[in-house]
Amino acid sequence: MNSVRFVRGAVAAALVTVLLSACSSDGDGDDGVPRSWIRDTYTDSRGSRWLDKNSSPARVADAIHDHRKALDRSSGGGKRFLRYGDDMVTVSPYRGGSMIEIEDYRNGYRRHQQHLVNWPNPNSQSYRGGGPGEGK
């Protein structure tokens, strides 16, 4: 009887560990923004902004997308946009290079919606995000 309880407890602890690690991800999961890679590749500007002083927004966006495929891409006003679940990456021209910003999808959509005509409106009833549990 005690061994059954021990096994159940061990299985429950393992499941809790897996669920907590999945929920506490910094967005570097298989479909999230490659934050660690961006941090390691580009120059930190201010918390959620990074710089590439030599490359165009198109080139930087392509590099990020090549590292981890975005769910959707768009462009407009000289900027490039990459959608990753509940987050988005905006790559803007900046002093002859590029500025990379990572932000919540809702905030990014509100700021740049004129360039995101085919992307789902996060304020609509049908929007489900893009993270774990999408479509539930």
Rank of each mutant, 00 (worst) to 15 (best):
R39L: 03
D40H: 07
W50M: 02
D40Y: 02
P57L: 02
G29K: 04
G47R: 09
N54M: 11
A58E: 10
L15W: 02
S24K: 08
P34N: 06
G32Y: 04
R39A: 13
S24W: 12
R49D: 09
A63G: 05
D30T: 13
C23I: 07
L51K: 07
S24N: 11
A12E: 05
R59M: 11
R46W: 10
F6M: 12
R59C: 07
D30K: 13
R39N: 09
G29R: 11
D52F: 03
A14G: 10
V33P: 01
I38Q: 07
L19Q: 09
A22W: 06
T17K: 05
V33Y: 01
R5A: 14
D62V: 01
P57A: 02
V18E: 01
A61K: 01
S36M: 11
L19N: 04
G29F: 06
S56N: 05
T41N: 11
D30V: 13
Y42I: 03
S21F: 12
R35V: 15
T43F: 05
S36C: 08
L19Y: 10
S56V: 03
L20W: 06
D52L: 04
R35I: 13
D62K: 13
S25E: 09
W50E: 02
V11R: 08
V7D: 09
P57M: 04
S48E: 09
V33K: 00
C23V: 09
F6C: 12
S45A: 10
Y42F: 15
N54L: 14
G32M: 04
D44N: 14
W37F: 08
S48D: 12
A22Q: 12
R59P: 00
I38A: 07
P57D: 03
A14P: 02
L20Q: 07
D52K: 05
V18F: 05
S56P: 01
V16I: 12
S55D: 12
V33Q: 01
V33E: 01
D28E: 05
V16N: 00
D31C: 06
V11I: 15
I64D: 02
A22F: 08
W50G: 01
